[in-house]
Simulated scan of single mutants.
Amino acid sequence: MCSKMYSQQLGELSDGQFQAALEHFQLGKFVRAQAIPFGNFGQNVFVTSTKGEYVLRGNPHFAGQFSTEQFYTKLLHERTEVPVPWPYYIDPTTKIFGWSYVLMPRMEGLQLADDEVRKQLKPAEKRAIAKALGENLAQMQELTWPFAGRYYAASGKVEPFDLERELAWPVPVSSSRLLSFDHARAVSYADRVVARIIHKLKDAQAYSEHTTQSDITWAEEYIASAQKALLEPFKPCLVMEDYKEGNLVVTQHGADWRVSGVFDLMEAHFGDGEADLSRAAAMYYDEDPELARIFVRAYLSRRPPRPGFEERFSVYMLLDRAILWNFFQYSKMRWWDESWTFRDWASRYVSLEAMGLS
């Protein structure tokens, strides 16, 4: 029986295992599997059967990852026109691979996570794709909820944000450092954002000397200047918290491009939709500030900004940068000046003016 190493996360898999997974959901006979050379965590494999093209996603990062992704994918499928991989089949048992797995349809379109694909795109095509991402993000946010909160697989429902669980997420509270709350504390979306920024930065201090108290004070000054803006009412909607080119595919329609598939919803929750501008805007800014401008303007053309947008943009960008910075410090990843602290790295992103978006 043929076996092959597909990724560090998934390990060596055999054709027989793929066949067993397909049979479990009556998805045809196994034809071939293809390792995916892009993406950060190596959870996915392209699988072809006699019934179609699929993605196998395995070895979850945390308990409830797949049921969380299934929950938000189902809602997007049922309540919006956003293309998502549905059905999203979950086998919670470990008997085939040694870990639970998902099988879902492979979405048609260009894989923008593939650097080789992006290298082939012309400047005009990149601009059209940035516009499509902004419009699609606005469309995703047609999925709303009565209150801000997160889906919890253990309860099978969306619950309002609780500060202790939110700071520990996605691990259990007992596994997280720096937490000492004696009981649950309900928290507003704004307070959750602020608490996560400070928590991520303080936690990053344990991994290197590149997060200083001066960095935290700098972040707190931005937060203080945005207090009024953060209190501006909003209708809670889907926030993916990792919205970027790498988590979707696109197709061309004449001179226009459209998002033809969105996936990887494990960090999703319901909150202020403006927060989902941060990651893609920063990545576009690094490549070409004009792409960032096109992306943000396309979004705002569909979802006009509320009062205080500029101040909230800074705080939401701080959160996104703090999440990534924490991960980079923990993982010992760095591709910038070794002497830089968090402020040195993040300051170019945290205002509309600094990014040339004002």
Rank of each mutant, 00 (worst) to 15 (best):
L56I: 09
H61N: 14
H61R: 15
H61F: 12
Y72P: 04
E78L: 15
R79N: 12
R79C: 09
P83F: 08
P87G: 08
D91S: 07
T93H: 10
T93Q: 07
T94E: 13
T94I: 06
I96F: 13
F97E: 00
S100P: 04
Y101Q: 09
V102P: 00
L103W: 02
M104T: 13
M104Y: 13
R106H: 03
L110T: 03
Q111L: 10
D114M: 05
E116Y: 13
V117T: 14
K119E: 08
E125N: 12
K126S: 01
R127Y: 05
R127V: 14
A128V: 09
L133G: 12
L133K: 13
N136S: 15
L137W: 12
L137R: 12
Q141G: 10
G149T: 06
R150W: 03
Y151N: 02
Y152H: 12
Y152D: 02
A154K: 03
G156R: 02
V158A: 03
L163Y: 02
L163I: 02
A168H: 07
P172V: 05
V173Y: 09
S176D: 00
R177T: 01
R177F: 03
D182W: 00
H183G: 11
R185K: 14
A186R: 15
D191H: 14
R196M: 05
I197T: 04
I198V: 11
